[in-house]
């Protein structure tokens, strides 16, 4: 288990390194680093000073070493717009995004599993067919479009739910959270639903396919032959088998959910890092862009690692192999 973990950590490190090279090349080679890293308002003397201090007169490989060195010390530059360290800006916005993404992922299981279970148990019914048709829409409709429709129906026409912002927040572990207040929850509902629609479709299809595949298995019949109640057969014997792929997929999707939060945050004016990055791109606040990209890569790698770990914990066969 330990060697396995170390190996995975080294792999993860390589991916982060590779991505840092790509981001570095993107910013320093394709774009003009002077334009990117120095505020357009700086005068000539200021420019020269910064070019020297950033080491832009050094050879490329040295610049990269410098970039990594700074990054390791948590210095990814200062935002031109906010005049704050880019990393701190992102860290401030991160809880809102994580809150949104995690809620969306939880919602995807909350809706996806029962719907998929139903569609798998009664595959020929009208309801199941409707669910499956709906899931095709969930896959193919652009998130922002669905978000607009949600706002149009629930905020504008019906006036049930607010359409912008986080609402009231409360503090927990020194961070502000929306889900702790009723108003915050009301604000969270539409964006989270919007963000989860794709994942709901994904989960429900996975669960349905899993149910269809597991139900005819001998061990399900044997469980019934033991005289177990149908609920126990379905929720323990069938569902536990399906949960392994579902949890893996949902966990892996957390990364792309955070990425796609960019869209939902823009539609619902949710003050997370997604909205920050879009605003930053629009005003060319490039230190923030670089910091965001590096943070996202790190986040991705971490999530992949955690999912792998979780997966080994869930599936006894993998767990034992990993032990060696």
């Amino acid at each position: 288990m330990t060697t396995w973990l170390i190996r995975r950590l080294i792999q993860a490190l390589f991916v982060v390194l590779a991505m840092s090279v790509i981001v570095f090349i993107g910013v320093h080679v394709i774009g003009n680093p002077v334009d990117i890293l120095i505020s357009p308002e700086a005068d000539q003397a200021e420019r020269a000073r910064i070019i020297a201090s950033l080491g832009l007169d050094q050879p490329l490989w040295k610049q990269y070493v410098l970039f990594v060195d700074d990054a390791l010390r948590g210095d990814l530059g200062r935002s031109f717009v906010f005049n704050e360290p880019a990393l701190r800006l992102i860290a401030q916005r991160m809880p809102a995004t994580l809150e949104l993404a995690v809620t969306a992922v939880l919602m995807s299981m909350l809706f996806g599993i029962p719907l998929g279970l139903y569609a798998g148990l009664y595959p020929d019914g009208v309801v199941a067919r409707t669910i499956m048709a709906g899931s095709i829409l969930g896959f193919s409709l652009p998130t922002f479009w669905v978000g607009l429709m949600l706002i149009m129906v629930f905020a504008v026409q019906l006036g049930w739910l607010p359409s912008t912002g986080r609402g009231a927040t409360a503090e927990l572990f020194g961070i502000q959270w929306s889900f702790l207040t009723l108003d915050g929850l009301r604000h969270l509902l539409l964006p989270a639903l919007n963000l989860s629609l794709f994942n709901i479709s994904l989960v429900l299809r996975l669960v349905r396919a899993g149910v269809r595949e597991t139900l005819p298995m001998d061990f399900v019949k044997f469980a019934r032959a033991k005289g177990l109640a149908p609920a126990r057969v379905i929720f323990v014997h069938v569902l536990k088998n399906i949960m392994i792929p579902v949890v893996t997929v949902v966990g892996l999707e957390l990364g792309s959910t955070i990425a796609f939060a960019v869209v939902t945050e823009s539609v619902f004016a949710w003050p997370g890092m997604g909205k920050l990055i879009i605003d930053s791109i629009n005003v060319l606040d490039r230190p923030v862009i670089v910091a965001y990209l590096m943070m996202i890569v790190l986040l991705f790698v971490t999530i992949n690692l955690v999912v792998d770990l979780l997966y080994t914990l869930l599936d006894p066969r993998v767990r034992l192999e990993a032990k060696g």
């Binding site: 298995m217 061990f219 033991k226 536990k240 006894p316 066969r317």
Partner: peptide, 18 residues
């Protein structure tokens, strides 16, 4: 499973793997 019980053909498949 109480008064009437059954054992299946393929032992590799009758027990739930998880």
């Amino acid at each position: 499973g109480n008064r009437i019980a059954m054992i299946f053909q393929d032992p590799m498949m009758t027990l739930n793997p998880v």
